[in-house]
Simulated scan of single mutants.
Amino acid sequence: MASTHPDTIQPGQPPPQACSQCKGVRKTFICIQCNNFAFCDECWPKWVLHGDGATGYNGKPHEKSDPKVMERLRRTLDPSVSEAEKDRQLEVDDETTWFGVVRDAAQRESLHDHGRFTMLMSESSDSGQQTGQQYPQLVSFIGQTGK
């Protein structure tokens, strides 16, 4: 039977995953190199691939990963949403588009400015002068949108 350590479980948080070794229900860490097995602090170093001097891919040691962070990354990088939901999300995000490549009637591509940057700059022109800091700062994600 799995043991429970209440001192390691945060109130209001979902119960942690059971340790792959001792089966205890306590705070665990995911090891990506070990096929996503979960290990508690006590069992982590006991696993043959986590011992002193043990290395994994490219000679690097196995790392403890927070299960919550891993789950968030999985949902972000491999979302399980339908094509209809993707289309809806893209429509909602359309007003946040700063620029993009569009085709004219002759199918020639050109860069189209959607006015978002100009709007942000006009809204923030006074605050930047007062603080001496540039706002907003430009961050760009370039690549396929999934559409």
Rank of each mutant, 00 (worst) to 15 (best):
R74T: 07
R75G: 11
Q89D: 00
E63T: 10
W47F: 14
H5W: 09
C31H: 01
N58L: 10
W44H: 04
P79C: 03
P79T: 08
R75M: 13
P45W: 00
T145F: 03
D93I: 01
H50P: 04
D7R: 11
G146Q: 03
C31L: 03
E95W: 09
S122N: 13
S20Q: 08
A54W: 05
T97K: 13
K27L: 12
C43M: 07
R75F: 07
F37I: 10
A105Q: 14
I30P: 05
Q133V: 09
Q33P: 01
H5L: 09
K68H: 06
H114I: 00
K23T: 13
V101W: 04
H50Q: 05
Q129V: 10
L49F: 09
G100Q: 12
P11H: 03
Q130K: 15
Q137Y: 01
I30Y: 05
K23I: 06
E109V: 02
T8R: 10
A54Q: 14
G115E: 02
D78V: 13
G24H: 06
C31K: 08
W44K: 06
K23N: 07
V102A: 15
C22Q: 02
D93K: 04
H50Y: 05
H50S: 06
R72C: 09
K64L: 04
S20Y: 11
G146Y: 01
Y57I: 09
S122W: 05
R72N: 15
K86F: 00
L90Q: 01
L73G: 03
R26Q: 14
K23D: 08
P61I: 06
L111K: 14
M1A: 14
N58P: 01
R26N: 07
